[in-house]
Simulated assay, not measured.
Amino acid sequence: MTVQGMPPPPPRGWTGWLMALLLAALVVASFITLDLKWAEFATPGALRSMAEFLGGFAPPELGTPFLLKTATGALETLAMSAVGTLLAVAAGLVLAIPGAGRLGMPLRGAVRVVLNVLRSIPELVWAYMLLIAAGLGPFAGTLALAAHTAGVLGRLFADALENAPLHAEHSLRTNGTPVLAAFLYATLPQTLPQMLSYTLYRWENNIRAAAVLGVVGAGGLGQMLKYHLSLFQMQPAATVILAMLALVALVDAASAATRRWLTK
């Protein structure tokens, strides 16, 4: 089609410009209201203090006993993230079906409220509350990850189910297939790759969150990091930080490889 034959572009409404202006005003107001002191970062005293602080991390602690302890903490952090994500996937699937309106619109609204509450509370707040009930250790951290991630995945799964084409399911139900079987064989397979992608992405996030949750006593590398930093033991802390970076890089690589395998 030639340029002359193409239809004219649709007219731009004023709402888009208004939203852009409001966003720009919000950004400007944020910079004005915050007391940002950029120049203090470049003062000789600040640079000297940062150099001394960073210098205390070198060299990392590489003794065999401490490396074994760090490896145990890394496995605990990995286990927390994996189990928390699996629990969240199970809960998210259960909540996504009514959350997608499959069981009626009134129940959809109620489930959406539950999902909003679950994901609105950060993992750290969940951990604080669950530590009171379950005590210190990875169990509370795992439940905290599962509670927050269930709200996130439940919403994403519900949106995927709502947006899935229903022609195949309607065709099966017209030919006498039960409702559950039609959903499992027609709609769910269409959304499964998208759900797996969401799950892998949230697992990556939960690796980082599990390391942070250890700071409040939920076990893993985060608890080790808090302990050594509170005692100003910088070299062991450097080893723990390097273990965190290695663990995140390993999970990122495994997740990327899994995505490539799923999209073949």
Results as ranks from 00 to 15, higher is better:
residue 144 A to L: 06
residue 237 A to V: 09
residue 208 R to Q: 11
residue 132 I to Q: 13
residue 200 L to R: 00
residue 185 Y to D: 14
residue 206 N to F: 08
residue 129 M to D: 06
residue 126 W to M: 11
residue 219 G to H: 00
residue 215 V to N: 00
residue 159 D to V: 09
residue 126 W to S: 07
residue 212 V to D: 11
residue 169 E to M: 08
residue 166 L to Y: 12
residue 165 P to T: 00
residue 144 A to R: 00
residue 168 A to M: 10
residue 118 L to N: 04
residue 131 L to M: 15
residue 151 G to W: 02
residue 238 A to D: 07
residue 173 R to M: 14
residue 143 L to F: 08
residue 128 Y to A: 15
residue 231 L to C: 10
residue 229 L to E: 07
residue 257 A to S: 11
residue 224 M to W: 03
residue 241 I to L: 14
residue 244 M to G: 03
residue 203 W to P: 02
residue 229 L to N: 09
residue 188 L to E: 15
residue 241 I to V: 13
residue 224 M to L: 14
residue 169 E to H: 05
residue 162 E to R: 04
residue 193 P to A: 12
residue 129 M to W: 14
residue 127 A to I: 06
residue 133 A to Y: 12
residue 127 A to H: 04
residue 202 R to E: 15
residue 196 L to I: 05
residue 199 T to F: 05
residue 152 V to A: 10
residue 113 V to S: 08
residue 117 V to W: 01
residue 125 V to R: 11
residue 149 T to Y: 02
residue 155 R to W: 05
residue 182 A to Y: 15
residue 148 H to D: 01
residue 205 N to C: 14
residue 246 A to P: 05
residue 228 H to A: 13
residue 190 Q to S: 09
residue 156 L to F: 04
residue 239 T to M: 14
residue 125 V to W: 08
residue 147 A to I: 00
residue 242 L to Y: 02
residue 184 L to S: 12
residue 167 H to M: 08
residue 137 G to I: 09
residue 130 L to Y: 09
residue 227 Y to M: 02
residue 184 L to F: 13
residue 211 A to N: 08
residue 207 I to Y: 00
residue 121 I to W: 09
residue 163 N to H: 08
residue 197 S to D: 10
residue 223 Q to Y: 04
residue 156 L to K: 01
residue 214 G to M: 01
residue 176 G to V: 00
residue 235 Q to K: 15
residue 135 G to F: 06
residue 221 L to C: 02
residue 231 L to F: 15
residue 244 M to Y: 04
residue 158 A to C: 05
residue 172 L to R: 04
residue 137 G to K: 07
residue 134 A to I: 11
residue 249 A to Y: 10
residue 199 T to Y: 04
residue 235 Q to T: 10
residue 235 Q to E: 15
residue 157 F to C: 04
residue 163 N to F: 06
residue 217 G to Y: 03
residue 208 R to W: 13
residue 243 A to L: 09
residue 124 L to P: 05
residue 240 V to P: 00
residue 257 A to V: 06
residue 196 L to A: 09
residue 187 T to N: 11
residue 232 F to E: 15
residue 201 Y to H: 09
residue 179 V to M: 14
residue 217 G to Q: 01
residue 172 L to C: 06
residue 235 Q to I: 08
residue 133 A to S: 13
residue 143 L to I: 12
residue 250 L to C: 15
residue 207 I to C: 06
residue 189 P to T: 02
residue 167 H to Q: 15
residue 123 E to M: 12
residue 140 A to I: 01
residue 151 G to T: 01
residue 141 G to V: 00
residue 183 F to E: 14
residue 152 V to D: 10
residue 143 L to K: 02
residue 156 L to I: 05
residue 207 I to W: 01
residue 218 A to Y: 05
residue 129 M to Y: 11
residue 256 A to Q: 12
residue 122 P to K: 04
residue 167 H to T: 11
residue 186 A to D: 12
residue 154 G to L: 05
residue 253 A to D: 02
residue 177 T to G: 13
residue 124 L to G: 08
residue 127 A to S: 11
